[in-house]
Design a protein around this nucleic acid. Structure first.
Lengths: 178, 178
DNA sequence: TCCCATTGTTTGAGTGTTCAATGATTGAAT
DNA sequence: ATTCAATCATTGAACACTCAAACAATGGGA
């Protein structure tokens, strides 16, 4: 049982730097969103995923996966967002078990108004300090983490089947995501 | 006001990968600790920092900073850990405002018992999939994030002034940290 | 047709985190 | 000495997240 492969000094250094950096980063990003839009990053991401989906609507399960949230979290979050009128929930026409969450116009407006400040924060807290090579590394490291933790490759557009099936003409809405 | 510098496609890709990866990673690590030790990563880190401090004790503020937690979080967390008998709180002899948190023997034993499983999880979820170069990049990226978010350079050993001042002979306890 | 394992989603309890307010103490300036 | 801003730490309320339990609906077989 004494066969634990401890982290090497280099690995420990990296792990601690990384943990501390992540906490600082996500704390800053969360705080900015909380201050300017009254919602945490997880909620913002839900709105973003909905805004990108065809018809601005997604089945709850797909929304959860797209936002890398548990079903429970998605359910609670959508409930809160619905109270604020930013999301609407409807029965799924093709599966009576299902629910479809749809971004309201008001929700979209909130997203559009919030996005610039959020992007600015992400730039300031992360990308402004990284070289292009480091950006690439960041992506690869993210993929490794997701893959190693049972997560799927994160489809940018999960194969959605929301009630409304319009191809969702992409326009400026594509831009306000992050 | 239309001067928002949106993320480039490469940056957006990196940001989304990174967020998803982080969630998967920390979810997995948290789940392992919760299952095997009944505590989240943030609490584990508090025990680790205490275990490394001279006399296994730290002022609350220093503990908070070492564990990259807010004072409020540290206070609540130590309260919970104290209930379980893993940490003890004492008045600071040199500053009547202060409190000193000290790791109990039982807390140390829990840490020692928990560390191997935790390290295994971190290896599996992260380091086993990274090249040595990526480990180095991970460290640098962590430093950038911490620096860009107002965080200080993260002293491995914050200049502690706990009640008991023994240099804390380093031995195997150094190893069980991560 | 009747099971019945599976899927889709919600719910509530328990726990952790944040935010703002509080109280106590300190150090330095007046 | 007195004042006052800054520091140390805690508290409680509001909110978010997790886990396990619940329930409804589905889709195949027997």
């Amino acid at each position: 049982m004494g066969d634990t492969r401890w982290l090497t000094p280099e690995e420990q250094d990296a792990w601690r730097s990384f943990m501390a950096g992540c906490r600082a980063l996500f704390t800053a990003v969360d705080a900015q969103l909380q201050k300017d839009a009254g919602m945490p990053l997880a909620y913002y991401e839900i709105l973003v995923r909905l805004s990108e989906a065809p018809g601005r609507a997604l089945r709850m399960s797909q929304l959860a996966e797209a936002a890398s949230a548990s079903k429970s979290r998605a359910s609670h979050a959508v409930a809160r967002l619905e109270e604020r009128g930013w999301v609407r929930r409807m029965d799924c026409p093709t599966d009576r078990r299902g629910q479809v969450a749809e971004l309201t116009d008001e929700g979209y407006a909130v997203l559009a108004a919030t996005a610039p400040g959020h992007v600015a924060q992400v730039r300031e807290s992360l990308f402004d300090g990284l070289t292009p090579e480091q950006v690439t590394q960041l992506k690869m490291i993210g993929q490794v983490m997701a893959a190693a933790c049972g997560g799927r490759p994160i489809p940018a557009f999960p194969p959605g089947c929301p009630g409304t099936e319009e191809p969702a003409e992409l326009g400026r809405e594509e831009a306000l995501a992050d």
